[in-house]
Amino acid sequence: MADQNIEAEEKASSGALMAAGLSVLYSLYLFYIQGERSKGIFVGLWAPTILTIASYVEQTDLTEKAQNELDA
């Protein structure tokens, strides 16, 4: 059961990393190819936001697991 939780966490982390990477690529496309500078900057700000949210969720899960182990 613990292995399933680790696999799910890895999938979530890699999903967030993939989304952040795609947002950077899309922002570069908007900025340089399309010439939409403000849209490119806006989309480029998604990457740190996505990574911050993923980090917060992961930290919350780890805190809950640690608390559950202390209570047991």
Rank of each mutant, 00 (worst) to 15 (best):
M1W: 03
Q4E: 14
Q4K: 07
Q4C: 01
Q4S: 09
N5W: 02
N5M: 11
N5P: 00
E7V: 10
E7T: 10
E7M: 07
A8K: 11
E9D: 15
E10A: 11
K11N: 12
K11Y: 07
K11P: 00
A12T: 08
A12D: 13
S13P: 00
S13M: 13
S13C: 03
S14Y: 15
G15H: 10
A16C: 09
L17V: 05
L17I: 06
M18Q: 13
M18F: 14
M18N: 09
A19H: 04
A20K: 06
A20C: 09
A20N: 09
A20F: 08
G21K: 09
L22D: 05
S23D: 06
S23A: 13
S23N: 08
V24A: 03
Y26G: 01
Y26T: 05
Y26L: 10
S27R: 02
L28G: 14
L28A: 14
Y29R: 05
Y29M: 10
L30E: 04
L30C: 03
F31K: 05
F31I: 00
Y32P: 00
Q34V: 06
Q34K: 09
Q34S: 08
Q34E: 13
G35P: 06
E36P: 00
E36F: 01
R37V: 14
S38A: 12
S38T: 14
S38K: 09
K39W: 08
K39D: 10
K39I: 03
G40W: 02
G40S: 10
G40H: 07
G40P: 02
I41F: 05
F42E: 15
F42V: 00
F42A: 15
V43P: 01
G44F: 04
G44I: 06
G44T: 08
L45C: 13
W46T: 03
W46L: 10
W46V: 03
A47I: 01
A47E: 01
P48Q: 06
P48A: 08
T49V: 15
I50R: 01
I50W: 01
L51T: 11
L51K: 05
L51W: 12
T52P: 00
T52C: 05
T52K: 01
I53R: 07
A54E: 08
S55G: 07
S55E: 12
S55Q: 13
S55H: 14
V57D: 10
V57L: 14
V57K: 10
V57G: 05
E58I: 08
E58M: 11
Q59N: 15
Q59H: 10
Q59I: 11
T60R: 13
T60M: 12
T60P: 00
D61L: 06
L62M: 13
T63H: 15
T63Q: 15
T63N: 15
E64G: 01
E64H: 14
E64L: 15
E64R: 15
E64W: 12
K65E: 07
K65L: 06
K65N: 03
K65T: 05
Q67L: 14
Q67K: 14
Q67V: 10
Q67G: 11
N68I: 15
N68M: 12
N68C: 08
E69S: 09
L70A: 14
D71N: 11
D71V: 12
A72K: 12
A72F: 05
A72Q: 12
